[in-house]
């Protein structure tokens, strides 16, 4: 990543459980990330993506307005890395054509998400 040394990476959060979203946001912000969102619907995230490209994204699979597949496709098109943070194993089938997706099953120990983000950003996850 060609980031200026002092920049805070911008992470898009797509998550419709507000408490979880806010907790992820707090954790990331504490660890020095900028957060876009949290967005609770795919439509809102897509709208935001029209003008901005994040450094990476954390996506829940099933949102209020449907599956996150469209967002995943848009991010792939822009070569933005993302990881899936979801409790629904069966949702994996909707993303089966994406290769090497980092899949983190809810819930995880604190710190795991931040660590995963670091790995995604250096391209090792």
């Amino acid at each position: 990543m060609n980031q200026p040394a002092n920049s805070r990476p911008l992470v898009l959060i797509l998550e419709d459980e507000a408490l979880i979203a806010l907790n992820v946001q707090d954790e990331l912000q504490d660890a020095g990330y900028e957060v876009a969102g949290p967005f609770s619907a795919c439509s809102a995230a897509l709208e935001w993506l029209r003008t901005t490209t994040p450094d990476m994204a954390i996506l829940d699979t099933t949102l209020k307005d449907g599956h996150c597949r469209e967002i995943a496709l848009e991010l792939s098109r822009r070569e933005v890395p993302f990881l899936i943070y979801s409790g629904y194993q069966e949702d994996q089938q909707h993303l089966s054509d994406f290769q090497h997706i980092a899949w983190i099953e809810k819930p995880v120990p604190s710190g795991t998400l931040v660590q995963a983000c670091q790995q995604v950003l250096v391209g090792s996850l």
């Binding site: 459980e17 408490l19 979880i20 806010l22 907790n23 707090d26 954790e27 409790g87 629904y88 809810k106 819930p107 604190s110």
Partner: peptide, 20 residues
């Protein structure tokens, strides 16, 4: 199944939020 998973994640978020 979904509700249990969600509840656990909610409880986890509650731990974080209450802790803060």
């Amino acid at each position: 199944h979904h509700r249990v998973k969600n509840t656990l994640a909610t409880v986890q978020a509650l731990v974080g939020a209450t802790g803060r």
